[in-house]
Amino acid sequence: MPAEILNQKEISRVITRMAHEILERNKGSKDLCLVGIHRGGVYLAGRLAEKIETIEGERPPVGTLDITLYRDDISLRKDPPVIKETDIPFSLNNMKVVLVDDVLFTGRTIRAAMDAVMDFGRPARIQLAALIDRGHRELPIKADYVGKNISTARKENVKVYYTEEEQTDLVMLLKEGEQTEEDI
């Protein structure tokens, strides 16, 4: 049986806490913006922005980022990955950019995301928010805001579902070779 890590209610609480942490650390939402990394990070960035809006009364600008073209394994992959939309409709110069991703694993995605963000401007600061930190970092990267730390084996798989795509928000831990119902 795949183990449930966070259910919808817990995810909502975690996001509320992270929103507070972001505001506390940055002393409000001035010059703050969120950039969600495809796919999951895009949904999470939207929700964090909503929460920040209910707390501060002002919604920080939200962008989406596709890191495909910045990957370090592009020449090692079998199929060239599909390029998704990168949409950052505001200047990143002198902004406090919070990168948002769902699962922090090797850190390679974040390395690529930081390179991509730098191509869009010169932010004052880049911070990282991740819903799940599952360890096994291959690069010296650390999240500033973590929803939940879990210890995993390398071959396990953390799967996140979103109401935008599925019936509910859910984080599951799949053992090696384990599949969810819909995969079968």
Binding site: L69, Y70, I74, S75, D115, D119
Partner: peptide, 10 residues
């Protein structure tokens, strides 16, 4: 359409 019209892909 960006200011820096270059990506490190290849």
């Amino acid at each position: 359409e960006r200011d820096i019209k270059k990506v490190p892909t290849l």
